[in-house]
Design a protein around this nucleic acid. Structure first.
Lengths: 345, 345
DNA sequence: CTGAAAGCGCTTACAG
DNA sequence: CTGAAAGCGCTTACAG
């Protein structure tokens, strides 16, 4: 099939402004104006155009519009790892927020790799993205910060979700991780949970670093000694939680409680404790992080720190929206986590 | 800032073919040809163009290209619910496959709602999507099938993932759900697990219906009587599994084993059994579906049926690729699930 | 209030 | 092998 005839065939199938214009007996310009609510078109004409558009099932070509307007109606969401509940939950709510305003979501799974982040950032201007939501828990290098700045200079609104990137000039929506961990660990220590271990990624994780700081704060506030051997710096995976506990038990490290950096880690830890015949919370108290749906269905049900994905998504949308309006968004929005008390602590 | 000056400013920041052409001392046409590997350009010129493009950090504008070529480099992935591990895992692997060939992924969470599906399908031609991956476990209505056909007629490649939509003319990649359930339930019955309950969505779920058929097959093959009161048709959620077991125990329905339609349901069921003082597998044998990462870390560790998200993603990519090449893809690809034997059965 | 025209940035027949 | 030209479909100053 020749390029010519293919085009003709497609134009039959997918109506354009010209088709609508012809049917309504007006010019393409009027169609465009009538369908975009802004311009002043006589009510009668607007109705005629809308009828024609509906009859034809007309949808403005997103690419022509994007090319002309210099921006798409697409926002990219960059997540650390879509398989982690925290990210899939955030994705769901961000998608919901944006689809309500006719914006599509381009999903990128960073796999916690900075080279993927760099690649996408470099691609962004060519995609004329209408926004980037950077939902990564990993510490950002200065090279990446430079790339972020470049994207911003190209006029792309950016919001950080989960970690505070205001130091790089990026408006951010975060949880108050440090306060949450401080509160939770403080309670563990008060309940007789010392020595208390922390399991979760610390080095290289901006979010993990904050949580671990809260863990340290709580020790300081309680005047409890802190042992470096009780910080188990591991990846955010079930198996890492299990392995860390196994190793500690094998090495004879004593602890009466564990603050995990995620519910997944806590579940892995629980499996290891159970395998060793230890009972939770009797022998070891255990607290997770994030209140993933699963945690309520563990036995013992997991005490954990709440998440507020819906609220976070709403704040992300707000931060994007102010940038779309040309206003400066609030620099930093911090959401508090609460302790969800269940059976494990 | 006027439209004019804004444009000028942006064109300074984001280089176009013209900028590259000027720098390399050639025409825009040559730039386009040199960068796209296909055309015949003298090696010397190609090098010069590539150098210029690199120096400027040039990326072809995706919208101009999409408009001109009549297709984007974007594939939409439609999932039932991104919070379910099955879908997030599939998303991750599909994303990986496609990003390797320079294709971006537009994610849509259907929330198991058909109106969302219809909406996206109608939008698809205007987005000039390069493909649609329909990963929904829900039964498709004939109205939706019509909409799918319309999208296909508009030239958009479509692949179904998870359920067999070949009846609607859509090439499909599925698991052999029926055989998997038959095998698993057959083993439960053989191990003395009768009466055996099935918990999971059946009505309205194409995938669930298949699994339930396998459950029935196994009973027939074993000559075991089947009781309708032992099919608990509930949503794919942790809480639904818990509630179904609670109800059955309250109503005094007897069962010695449970085949769950997902690992999440199995976990919910396990919680309820535990709360009632029942031991798994001693009192009740339990098998999940899908081998989600979590299932290995439950105690007792969950016996379940394997998933192969990576292979499925590869097959999806293949099916899209043949359509991109103008070839007919294999109608139906069926992936076998294996029984992952752990402690719960 | 409406239409004709220009142009967004790219790619590809069409000439040479 | 390379360049000039056309055109993808849309929107928006510019005239009227």
């Amino acid at each position: 099939m020749s390029d010519q005839s293919k085009r003709k065939k497609l134009s039959r199938l997918v109506p354009t402004v010209r088709d609508v214009a012809k049917r309504a007996g007006v010019s393409p310009a009027t169609v465009s104006r009538a369908l975009g609510d802004k311009a002043v078109v006589s009510p009668e004409l607007r109705q005629r155009v809308q009828d024609a558009a509906n009859a034809l099932g007309y949808r403005p070509n997103a690419f022509a519009r994007g090319l002309r307007e210099g921006r798409s109606r697409i926002v990219a969401l960059l997540v650390g790892d879509i398989e982690q509940s925290h990210f899939s939950s955030l994705t769901k709510h961000v998608q919901k927020e944006l689809s309500a305003v006719g914006t599509d979501l381009l999903l990128h799974d960073l796999e916690h790799r900075e080279d993927r982040l760099m690649h996408i950032l470099r691609q962004a201007p060519a995609l004329q993205l209408n926004g980037i939501v950077l939902a990564s828990s990993d510490t950002i290098s200065s090279a990446a910060a430079t790339e972020i700045a470049a994207a911003r200079n190209a006029g792309i609104p950016i919001v950080a979700a989960g970690q505070d990137l205001t130091w790089a000039g990026v408006p951010s929506v975060t949880y108050n991780e440090r306060a949450a961990a401080r509160h939770s660990v403080g309670q563990l220590l008060a309940l007789g949970g010392a020595p208390c271990a922390y399991v979760g990624r610390v080095q290289g994780s901006a979010v993990g670093t904050e949580r671990h700081r809260g863990y340290c704060d709580a020790h300081e506030a309680a005047g409890a000694p802190r042992d470096a051997a009780l910080t188990w710096d591991v990846a955010y995976r079930y198996s890492a939680g299990r392995d860390a506990v196994n190793r500690a038990l094998r090495e004879g490290i004593a602890f009466r409680s564990i603050q995990a950096g995620s519910d997944e880690l806590a579940m892995g830890a629980l499996a290891a404790l159970t395998d060793h015949g230890l009972r939770v919370p009797r022998d070891v108290r255990l607290v997770g992080f994030g209140n993933v749906e699963m945690s309520a269905h563990l036995r013992p049900a997991l005490t954990t720190l709440s998440s507020h994905a819906e609220e976070m998504a709403r704040c992300i949308h707000q931060a994007l929206d102010s940038q779309w309006q040309g206003q400066a968004p609030q620099e930093l929005v911090m959401i508090e986590r609460g302790l969800v008390q269940r059976q494990s602590s």
